[in-house]
């Protein structure tokens, strides 16, 4: 404990102007991020001076209207996109894993090899990586499908596979980009329940980009609301619902109240893009 405090001190000194008391346990911090895209020779401002801090072991939901740049922000946080302006601080160079929107599974690898991919790239020996992968395949309920190729799986199974592939690498930070976007309602509920369980067991630092207010509240410790493009952080709401949570949490009056706040907050910015989801 003392050690970790000591490790923080030099950083504190550097950034004393920004660090407030409750944010000392940050793991990844995006400072004043601005992102400009060029499409067909035209510059588009996607993000404007966005600050985002991921606290160690916290679950952050990021919500906002379509095209507001929330995926871009996630990709910048994960360093697969570079900001046009602003900077990204990472503490102790954390290991980062992604769960992508369309799963981005490798069609040429079996379920087992897809899960083992990250471990293979990390140079883990065959036996060990299959053992660990097998464990996660069982945890997400894909046992019996180890030798199946992804294109023979249903949408929900692919998503579980994608989650297993991320968790097996034991990441410090897990970045999920609308992981439930392509799923039907029933499957989505099942996977949300799985995610709650997995997260409460592992307590990774998670950033979840989502379209769904329910999902944002149900899973998150806090909900970050973005404005429409150019994306800015509009509000940050703490979710004071105790854990463990379940799907029944959604009927809790505090949940409903929070949902109501978010709906008013997003107002017309989000209603147009989201009320049919």
């Amino acid at each position: 404990m003392l050690k970790s405090v000591a490790r923080m001190l030099p950083n504190l000194g550097e950034r004393i102007n920004k660090v407030t008391g409750e944010e000392q346990d940050w793991l990844v911090r995006a400072n004043q991020i601005t992102k400009v895209f060029t499409t067909n020779g035209q510059g588009i401002l996607a993000l404007e001076e966005v600050d985002l801090t991921l606290r160690q072991g916290s679950f952050t939901s990021l919500i906002g209207p379509s095209g507001c740049g929330k995926s871009t922000l996630l990709r910048i946080v994960g360093s697969i996109e570079t900001p046009s302006r602003g900077s990204l601080d990472q503490r102790q160079s954390p290991r980062i894993a992604f769960v992508f929107q369309d799963h981005a599974l490798f069609p040429w690898l079996t379920v087992l090899d897809n899960v083992a991919f990250g471990l293979k790239m990390a140079g883990i020996a065959t036996k060990e990586r299959y053992r660990r992968s097998q464990l996660w395949i069982e945890r997400v309920g894909l046992a019996g499908f180890e030798r199946t190729f992804p294109n023979a799986l249903s949408g929900g199974m692919r998503q579980r596979l994608s989650i297993a592939r991320a968790f097996v690498t034991e990441p410090d930070v897990l970045l999920m980009d609308e992981p439930m976007g392509a799923l039907d309602e029933q499957t989505r509920l099942l996977i949300q329940e799985d995610l709650i369980r997995l997260w409460e067991e592992t307590r990774k630092t998670v950033l979840l980009v989502t379209h769904s207010i329910d999902e944002a509240i149900l899973l998150g410790d806090r909900v970050v609301i973005m404005s429409r493009r150019p994306g800015r952080i509009k509000t940050i709401l703490e979710v004071d619902l105790e854990r463990p949570r379940s799907l029944h949490t959604m009927t809790d009056p505090r949940f409903v109240a929070l949902k109501d706040t978010i709906i008013s907050d997003l107002h017309d910015e989000v209603m147009a893009s989201m009320d049919l989801r």
Partner: peptide, 25 residues
């Protein structure tokens, strides 16, 4: 699919390994 290339490099396949494990297949 660019997402596959991203997934590949996000999971540590860069340079030559990205070629053998993602680009070629």
């Amino acid at each position: 699919d660019p997402q596959l290339l991203e997934a590949g490099s996000a999971y540590g396949a860069k340079g030559r390994r990205l070629f053998w494990h993602v680009l070629l297949p």
